[in-house]
Write a protein that binds this DNA or RNA. Sequence first.
DNA 1: GTCCAGGTCGCGC
DNA 2: GCGCGACATGGA
Length: 302
Amino acid sequence: MPNNHRLVIDPPQPFDFHSTITSHGWAVLLPNAYNPETNSVIRVDPLPSGKVAHLNIGSDAEKSGGQITVDVQTARPLNQGDERFILNSVRHMLRLDEDYSGFYKLCRKKGGAWKNLLAGKGRMIRSPSLFEDLVKVICTTNIQWGGTKRMVGELVDVYGKPFDPDPALKTFPEPESIAGDAPEVFKTRVNLGYRAEYIHGLAVNIAEGSFSLDDLKDESVPTAEVRKKLKSIKGIGDYAAASMLMLLGRYDEIPVDTVFRDFMSQNYFDEGAFDPKAAVEMYADWGEWKSLAYWFEMLESE
DNA sequence: GTCCAGGTCGCGC
DNA sequence: GCGCGACATGGA
């Protein structure tokens, strides 16, 4: 008999739940799933106690600003440590502790459509763990979105921990789980193409402790150093590093990829005249908020 | 069948 | 520091 438990979080103000979970594709990359009817994100996660939990992260209010609800389902009752872990995890995913006042200040100054962001937009959903975000970002390079979903889905299916009441639902793999297979075996169990050795290598390095994710999370470390550390990971180049920096809450660098090229070409350049340096330069006055400004300008224009 | 994707690597200059 | 081909895989 599964155990159900509801956790409630009061978000900071302003806060737009729907904008946060739909701010990019992460909400539909396994183990995440988006339920448009309830406007919630579902996901399965391992807990410190060893249990596996099914989370339904939603917001009770129709409008932004409402309480965040986390409906947790587990095979056996949660203990306090698990509960705290889930709350921290959701806070991290939704970036409830990130300060956007500097960004909003610039939006107010710019006026016009930028004011639409003041109602609590600007948050981009991320994964509970940096390993998951790194793997997912690597899986967005040199491939279409459908391919990203397939590869991430295979990883979850083969290396994730099943959720007892419904074993088809699985967690995102721990580095140890992937590192437990030899690289040759890993390659045959999931079809990741040339990315297989990048992801397996990263998992091994993290599992062995030779690559520390804590350095990346350290807010006192200058962005240039974090960037360098990110780029030392095989498979993480300029675009992926800039994307990871965004997920880490550092917005000084714009990820230049086909999405950026297409958006900028269409809106700011004559046919075929796109110039990446000039395009990036257009966001110079956003200072430490450049990539966030670009991203939400693009979302708002859709 | 052929092309190529939310790029990156490793090489040669 | 810059240009360029190779890169696995499966969907378009």
